[in-house]
Amino acid sequence: MTILEAHNITKSFGSAKVLNRVSLSLEEGESLAIIGPSGGGKSTLLRCLNFLERMDTGRISVRGEVLYDSEVPGSEDGLREKRLHFGLVFQSFHLFPQYTALKNITLARELLVKKQPSYKDRKTELLEQIRSDGLALLEQVGLSAKKDAYPHELSGGQQQRVAIARALALNPDILCFDEPTSALDPELTGEVLRVIRSLAEKNTTMIIVTHEMQFARQVADKVVFLDDGAVLEYGVPQEVFEPPLSERMQRFLSHYTDQNL
């Protein structure tokens, strides 16, 4: 089943066109890798999907429901709820420094659950549920022992794993990653990639912007090559990475020769 359809997304900053009629679709349980040169618009695309950036034109639907359509007035309404279809993991984690690892994961849900009509009667039960779900997520990313640690007490790789758990806590339909390992020392990228890989094995629907070509090739079901704001290649990894390569793709991949594609 098609879970995400993004249609003709266009975005300019001033006179610079950063995304030019980008369309993509994603099946449930698939993971999509977005690769491409720096400045190609990868982050901007993710930010548009998460409504952190307002696209100039375009349409986004999830499970057939149109979340945003620039042609339809009033599309801005309820963006906050619509966001919950997506999760976003940032390049530099952005954990909340004053909260423990566990609280970072549970905070948003604790705030959301307050709006349930039954909240007052079932408060302790609901909060207990959120807490135990949070602990399960920490376990899933291998950080049970760090539940009471504050972000500054964690390594970059651990922080990023907490950030992944935090994004998972709200059960998004589509989990987006913006270069999740780019801010990490090389020896720490492995632990984060392992977590993402295990999510892929559980058929989590994901969009991963990455510079880890080998990882994209092995883990992603589909690959998008985004250059200059346009989709130049789109297909299964075999198609995208295997010759014959387009000239732009060849030039881009030549920077990664050491990575043993």
Binding site: R80, R83, L84, F86, L88, S92, H94, F96, L107
Partner: peptide
């Protein structure tokens, strides 16, 4: 980015301000 991290988790602007 602290605001954005809160926003993508569905928090309102007020929640982000007072909680984060």
């Amino acid at each position: 980015s602290q605001y954005e991290a809160g926003q993508v988790l569905g928090m309102t602007k007020t929640q982000v301000f007072f909680r984060v």
